[in-house]
């Protein structure tokens, strides 16, 4: 079972990232669950969202405390939060940042890092700093959990009016993210 934790701020779409990833995995025939950190929602406040993916039915319904992968949608969260908390040994951290992966490897103290200038791509392609789909592109570059076309399919179903822009931003993230393993 792969467990993923998304860190974002209310309104950035972390919950949507978790959902779209799970739905793409389910469509590929796997089992997956996605859920937000349970509670009330506030724009701008730090939020967590979670995805589990497995070959078998997922009977575990607790929170995720020891993720295999952490995805950080908003780089300012790293200053106030230990985003790598509980991360498994050899776990992967995917970060929206202008800094190179080598910097974060040192800074956070993890071996596997993937970086992408997600806010830059979001402003250029979408005109708004919403990075959820872009972060999924970076995640898949570092860890091929589902086929990218499954995410693209979900984007087209969920955001029909801005699908082309979102797909372009997603593809750019796959091409432009940098991974050190």
């Amino acid at each position: 079972m792969i467990e993923i934790r998304f860190h974002g701020r209310g309104g950035q779409g972390a919950v949507t990232s978790a959902e779209i990833l799970a739905q793409a995995a389910i469509e590929e025939g796997e089992y997956a669950t996605a859920f937000p950190s349970f509670g009330s929602e506030r724009r701008g406040a730090p939020v967590l969202a979670f995805t589990r993916i497995d070959k078998e039915q997922i009977k575990l319904r607790t929170g995720i405390y020891q993720p295999d992968i952490v995805v950080v949608l908003d780089p300012t969260l790293i200053e106030s939060h230990n985003v790598a908390e509980g991360l498994k040994k050899n776990g992967l951290v995917v970060i929206n940042t202008k800094k190179p992966p080598e910097f974060w490897k040192e800074e956070i103290g993890v071996n596997r890092v993937c970086t992408v200038k997600a806010t830059v791509i979001a402003m250029q392609e979408l005109g708004v700093p919403i990075t959820n789909i872009i972060m999924l592109g970076a995640l898949l570059k570092a860890e091929p959990l589902v086929r990218p076309e499954m995410i693209e399919k979900r984007i087209r179903e969920r955001f029909p009016h801005i699908a082309e822009k979102e797909v372009r931003a997603f593809d750019r993230a796959i091409n432009e993210s940098r991974v050190i393993q």
């Binding site: 978790a18 959902e19 799970a22 739905q23 389910i26 089992y31 997956a32 669950t33 996605a34 859920f35 937000p36 349970f38 997922i58 319904r61």
Partner: peptide, 10 residues
Amino acid sequence: GFILTHMIEP
């Protein structure tokens, strides 16, 4: 509540 209501699953 939440554990199922807010869960995306197959």
